[in-house]
Amino acid sequence: MATAALGTAMLALPPGRALAQPAPLARAIPSSGERMPAIGLGSWITFNVGNDAALQAECTAVMAAFFAGGGRMIDSSPMYGSSQAVIGRGLATLGHPDALFAAEKVWTSSGTNGPAQIDETRRLWGVERFDLLQVHNLLGWEAHLDTLQAMKAAGRLRYVGITTSEGRRHDLVEQIMARQPLDFVQLSYNPVDREAEQRLLPLAAERGIAVIVNRPFQQGALTRRLDRAPLPDWAAEIGATSWAQLILKFILAEPAVTVAIPATTRVDHVRENLAAAGGALPDRELRGRIAAHIGAL
């Protein structure tokens, strides 16, 4: 049944259209210069489907559409229930695409338990090593950063990062960004959650730290709220055909942002998200108008 569901979902992917899509905007990771498509794929809630074979197949179809559209970064965490196993199953089904940029997290208060958790996560993904490991929500960050830096030095990891979400602990995030040799910082940012603009985004630009934006749609709450209102005519000026695209274009127009990682369960939404990074981005004046308009709704 799962195979049939995946087959149906894959049929919904017109290869011609996927190939015809322009490659999404790519941004350089400052610490290496490696270019990264600016739309990634989050897995918070959306990929936590347990043993439900039909839903697992849907997740695999989402991943297939993501890779077909030029996406690379998939992000998860031990906190996300079955998401890691679901990603691993999807990657195996898709033959472990070379394009994958595997971004994971370590999430345990014990520094001693970090390596074992990372090994288990690697087993669930079915990958030899991760491209990026981040300290999730700064939990046990000092010990874990030591572990991750040691892994990077030994060639067992390419990039090291930290994460926060929904504006929490920005003071500490700022301190760590200022003092530690980080490759990535992950934080929440969208037209209504703009606290990161004050200190973290300028600091990331100054220190050469790549920025991953999580919860661009506030876990769907923002787009659900906006869906009740018509998309303004001026959204067409930058080729945005949906609220989701307008939000993503707003985020990607911030130069310090490297990748936004919207999560979804739907193939059409993956395509829509990737397409947001494929056209014009708003200038400063239009970004202001987007934020004011969305904030007022």
């Binding site: 809630i45 936590n48 489907v49 347990g50 439900d52 839903l55 876990q219 369960t265």
Partner: peptide, 14 residues
């Protein structure tokens, strides 16, 4: 809802 790890759809399908 910050503590909710799954969607209602997944829960009810259980």
């Amino acid at each position: 809802d910050d503590f909710l790890l799954f969607s209602p759809r997944v829960y009810w399908r259980l």
